[in-house]
Design a protein around this nucleic acid. Structure first.
Lengths: 104, 104
DNA sequence: AATACATATGAACAGATATTCATATGTTCA
DNA sequence: TGAACATATGAATATCTGTTCATATGTATT
C-alpha cells in the first residue's frame, strides 16, 4: 500500500470533516469569539453580553442563535432575561489551544 | 467592580480576538481541513494532496496559498514538485481537540 | 390593560469566500 | 530547444455570512 492510500485511509470520513469544519466555523468570527469569552465562566444575559461585546442587541441575538444551533451554548430564562452560558468545557479548551498557537 | 467589568477586563484585546478568529477561519472549510489532514504526518506534493482531497489542482493550490499566508503550512521545492507539510504541531492538537468535541 | 423592558426574528444588503476556467510560470528530460 | 509535467495565479461567478433596520414576541410592573 503506497503512502497516498495510507493517508486516505487515515483521513476522517467526509461527515466528520464537515462537522469539524462546522465547529471551527463557529469560532471564526470575532463577535462569536467575544460572546463565548463573555460566557465562559458565568452565565450572562443578552444585554450584558451585548454590552461586553460592544455590538448591537440584534447582532448578538443572531449570533447566539447560531451558537445555540451548534450546541455550543445553553440558556435559561429568568424573568425578562435569558441567561446564556457555554454548553461544555471543550469550548474553553479549544479557545485556549488556539490562543496558545497565536501567542508564539 | 461588577461582574460585567470583571469579564471585560478578562477579555483578550481585540487584536488577539481577531487573530484567534483568523486562525479558526483557516479550519472552517472542509477542503482546508482535508488538506491539513493530508500533510499532518508527512509532506506531500500538490498533486498527491489533490488526489487525496478529491478536489481540483487549482482549488487545492488556492487553498494552500491561504494556509501558507496563515503560516499553517510550510513547503519546499523538489524538482518539479512542491512538498507541503504542516508548520507546527499545534495544528494537529487543535484538530484533535475539535474532533474530540464533535465525537461525543 | 397599558407601558416599559428584554429578546428574537425576518428581510435586505454589503462584503467575503471557494470554486472554476483559462493560462502563466517554472522545471525536467529527450 | 521543445515537449511534458507540476504548480501558481488572475478573473469571474455563485454562494455564504454578518450586520442593520424594523418589528414581533414575551415578560414584569404599575
Amino acid at each position: 500500500m503506497d503512502n497516498i492510500e495510507m493517508i486516505k485511509d487515515a483521513m476522517p470520513v467526509d461527515e466528520e470533516i464537515y462537522d469539524l469544519a462546522e465547529l471551527f466555523k463557529m469560532l471564526c468570527d470575532a463577535t462569536r469569539v467575544k460572546i463565548l469569552y463573555s460566557i465562559l465562566d458565568s452565565e450572562m444575559s443578552v444585554s450584558d453580553i451585548t454590552e461586553i461585546v460592544g455590538s448591537t442587541q440584534s447582532a448578538v441575538s443572531h449570533q447566539l442563535r447560531v451558537l445555540k444551533q451548534a450546541r455550543l451554548v445553553k440558556y435559561r430564562k429568568v424573568g425578562k432575561s435569558v441567561l446564556y452560558s457555554v454548553s461544555d468545557e471543550h469550548v474553553a479548551t479549544i479557545l485556549s489551544m488556539g490562543m496558545e498557537h497565536i501567542s508564539e
